[in-house]
């Protein structure tokens, strides 16, 4: 029996590439921000650490996790878009991505900005996997919220 091509929308090459070789692997020793995310539905886990520079911009990113291809690839892709951003900008990125996953469409500008992340659009056709795709992103949001509590 042949596998339907729908599956290739979900498991695009770039996603499987990030799954096999996640970027920014390894946690920072002394991070300014740290977040842990867990999806009890399938046991996916992401730990995210961020280091800030003197201007408060994200200078370093490190993550570790285990779980399905979508959760790990999405988190890996996210780490590639954080360096140089302020926490507000990072939050904006999360909002954009969440909006897309919850039914919105990328604008051409967003497609340019987000690059490889656009590949995750295929996840929308498999609603049960959206939570997997969002895990790293909500972990980042939580880490920023926790950081603000102690630093504002």
């Amino acid at each position: 029996m042949q596998l339907p091509s729908e599956l290739d929308d979900l498991y695009q090459d770039i996603i499987l590439d990030h799954y096999r070789s996640p970027r920014h692997q390894g946690l920072l020793d002394d991070p300014d921000l740290r977040g842990e995310g867990f999806n009890p539905f399938c046991g996916d886990q992401v730990v995210l650490t961020l280091g800030l520079d003197e201007a408060g911009r994200i200078a370093e990113v490190g993550f570790e996790g285990q779980g399905c291809s979508i959760s790990q690839a999405s988190a890996s892709m996210l780490t590639g878009h954080l360096e140089g951003k302020t926490l507000e900008e990072a939050e904006g990125l999360v909002r954009t991505f969440k909006g897309i996953m919850q039914g919105g469409e990328f604008t051409p500008e967003q497609e340019d900005e987000l690059g490889d992340i656009v590949a995750l659009q295929g996840v929308k056709r498999f609603p049960i996997r959206i939570k997997c795709a969002l895990l790293g992103w909500t972990t980042l949001q939580d880490a920023i919220a926790a950081y603000r509590k102690t630093h504002d």
Binding site: M1, L3, P4, E6, L7, L10, Y11, P40, F41, C42, G43, D44, G67, C68, S69, I70, F126, R129, C132
Partner: peptide, 24 residues
């Protein structure tokens, strides 16, 4: 990952469970 196994099998009409089965 089991979740990915389950996803591909579903496309073939095969229903299995993936996860910790409420026995974490």
């Amino acid at each position: 990952h089991p979740h990915d196994i389950g996803q591909v099998l579903d496309q073939l009409g095969i229903a299995i469970r993936a996860g910790h089965h409420c026995a974490m």
